[in-house]
């Protein structure tokens, strides 16, 4: 690792000022991704501002019935939280499906959202990568693309976002609360991560020095019936080949409302709005679920090595929705 200086922030404004005023600085949360990148040479901040002692470590109920999750809440604590487990089971499942106990003990909610892609070329500093070194080209295109994007990719980057947690949160309409030098702002999670476009080095809409302080989940009563399903190579931890987060509101055999998001398919956690639109008002049958999946996947553009993802997403989405609708029909 390159040498770096270290500071421990005692308040949020101070942390923001320290990073914002120093171009080479980075916030240090759990560090599970950042420290790894520093060792690989993918990142080389010269100042780390440790934010783990800031008072963002609580999960609170909001008056609106929603939940506010402090950015410093550990993944292990969030997965075990009673409010989350009872109201948003898909989020708890998503957290538990990723990483190991040791990692979840360190990893924070804010840091999880800011995880960078696990594209093998991004992590290998000897290869060209537009995300790591703008303008050098994309090694994945024409290379090893088994894990790469089928939706929303560009000619400059075909990487996928690795988080499981964010997929569930995007399905739940989460809002990210961000503190900058000019104060707080709120960003819908679905707009928080970016598609690669012409500037794939920008993962999110955050500016340098902006700090995530919380994630808010609105009330969603039917999310008590929700699930997260991940397809991966190995039963223990591995990144998703594809994943599906879904909540389904069914009454009298008809879908009243649905939330669906996909992981492992795009540069961002992918909210499946086309599928949701197709589901609303449709009969809760396998046929409708397939049609919804097809509606979402119509835009899919596979690469040489990942065409399997299209039927795999379709199958997984149908399976999750069927399971949820079966729960709904006693």
């Amino acid at each position: 690792m390159n040498p770096f200086a270290y500071e421990r922030a005692s308040n949020a404004a101070g942390a923001v000022a320290a990073v914002a005023g120093h171009p080479g600085a980075a916030f240090l949360g759990g560090g599970t991704n950042l420290v790894d990148h520093m060792r690989l040479g993918v990142a080389s901040p010269d100042l780390l501002v440790d934010i783990t002692k800031l008072p963002f470590d609580r999960v609170e109920e909001l008056p609106s019935g929603g939940v506010r999750i402090g950015a410093g809440v550990r993944n292990s604590d969030l997965a075990a939280d009673q409010l989350i487990r009872s109201r948003y089971p898909m989020l708890s499942q998503a957290l538990l499906s990723g990483a190991s106990g040791q990692l979840r003990n360190l990893a924070t909610t804010g840091g999880n959202l800011l995880q960078r892609t696990r594209c093998v070329y991004f992590q290998d500093v000897t290869t060209p990568c537009n995300k790591r070194e703008p303008g050098t080209g994309c090694s994945a295109i024409g290379g090893y693309t088994r894990y790469h994007a089928i939706l929303g990719a560009s000619e400059h980057c075909v990487a996928v976002h690795p988080s499981d947690m964010a997929v569930a949160m995007v399905a739940l309409d989460a809002t990210v609360v961000v503190l900058g030098r000019l104060g707080e702002r709120r960003v819908k999670l679905v707009e928080f991560h970016r598609l690669p476009g012409d500037d794939p080095w920008q993962d999110t809409v955050l500016g340098h020095g902006e700090l995530i302080v919380a994630v808010e989940l609105p009330a969603l009563p039917f999310a008590t019936r929700s699930a997260y399903r991940k397809v991966r190579d190995r039963a223990s931890f591995a990144f998703a080949l594809v994943s599906v987060a879904a909540a389904l509101d069914v009454e009298g055999g008809t879908v009243r409302d649905a939330r669906v998001a996909l992981g492992g398919v795009a540069h961002k956690p992918w909210r499946a709005t086309q599928a949701e639109a197709a589901l609303r008002g449709a009969p809760a049958t396998a046929e409708s679920f397939r049609r919804a999946a097809d509606a979402e996947l119509a835009a899919a553009r596979p690469l040489d090595g990942n065409a399997y993802k299209i039927p795999m997403v379709r199958n997984t989405m149908v399976a999750v929705l069927r399971d949820l609708s079966a729960e709904a029909t006693p």
Partner: peptide, 20 residues
């Protein structure tokens, strides 16, 4: 794996300063 303040963590991912 070691315990940092009682919790198991991968010590390879923890900056040494953090143990302060």
């Amino acid at each position: 794996t070691v315990w940092l303040d009682g919790e198991p963590v991968h010590s390879c991912l923890v900056p040494a300063f953090r143990a302060t």
